[in-house]
Computed example of a mutant assay.
Amino acid sequence: VLEPWQREIVRIVRVVAQYFYPQRQTQVMNEGCATFVHYTLMNMLFDRGLISEGAMLEILRNHSNVIFQPGFDDPRFSGINPYALGLDMMQDIQRIATEPTAEDRDWFPDIAGNGNWRETLLDAWANHRDESFIRQYLSPALMRKWRFFILADAASEPHYEVASIHNERGYEKIRAGLAQSYDIGASRPDIQVVDVDLLGDRQLRLEHKVKNGIMLEEASRDATLRHIRTLWGYEVSLAAIDAQTGATLNERSTSQIGE
């Protein structure tokens, strides 16, 4: 059983985690908005002669460093740079609102050529998170610029398959796939407390909803269970449940794990 000071530490960690959790849902929008606004304002000030060429060069150098996107085969690659994607999407919305192509008018009839990119962006910032923002506003032009495509990675197959490319059907799937990758509910393990036997052995029972057959990494799972047992003070079990069928895939208990 935890001492009062230990419980207070756990409470602080929980509160801090709850504060930061929603921010993971708006990385592209937050960083993209900051970069877009800064870049746009600095260029406006420069055009009006309020910033010197030397200062502007320094601004552009820092800006380029922030939005740098390494290629997938670059040792520095760690995923999509939210600053770069966010900036490109917001500049693309600005373009669609002011200088749309025929393709833009087909894909975005509500905003293409409306001439009011500021209101369009304000509406997007106010009403979307990363997942819905990408699902709503990622354009075919931007997918081509970023060279996005979808690789199918089936555990039962020995090779990857290029499943979606730059055509009408492919654009829809690429946009949906990228948006899904920013959905925390789909990318983070869903583990919940489902039962505790307070009148018996006080064992804490957890369930992991397994999606798309993706199981927890065993070493990390066992280490986490040991830590929860330390906090709880009694045995802890974790059942892996298929999210679609409800079938139990496996179950692991701290009684099966060594110290």
Results as ranks from 00 to 15, higher is better:
73 D>Q: 12
74 D>M: 03
76 R>K: 14
76 R>L: 10
78 S>E: 12
79 G>V: 10
83 Y>Q: 09
85 L>K: 07
85 L>F: 07
87 L>R: 03
88 D>L: 08
89 M>V: 05
92 D>W: 06
92 D>N: 14
93 I>Q: 01
94 Q>L: 11
95 R>E: 07
95 R>Y: 09
95 R>L: 12
97 A>K: 01
97 A>H: 04
103 E>C: 06
104 D>W: 00
104 D>G: 00
107 W>R: 08
110 D>F: 02
110 D>C: 10
110 D>S: 13
111 I>Y: 01
112 A>I: 05
113 G>W: 08
113 G>S: 03
114 N>I: 09
115 G>C: 04
116 N>H: 11
117 W>P: 00
117 W>M: 06
119 E>Y: 03
123 D>F: 08
123 D>Q: 09
124 A>N: 05
126 A>G: 12
129 R>K: 13
130 D>T: 07
131 E>D: 15
131 E>P: 00
132 S>I: 07
132 S>Q: 08
133 F>I: 11
135 R>E: 15
136 Q>T: 15
136 Q>L: 12
137 Y>R: 14
138 L>W: 04
138 L>R: 03
140 P>E: 12
143 M>L: 13
144 R>C: 09
146 W>Q: 11
146 W>R: 13
147 R>W: 04
148 F>H: 08
148 F>C: 11
150 I>F: 04
154 A>K: 12
156 S>H: 14
157 E>M: 11
157 E>W: 11
157 E>A: 14
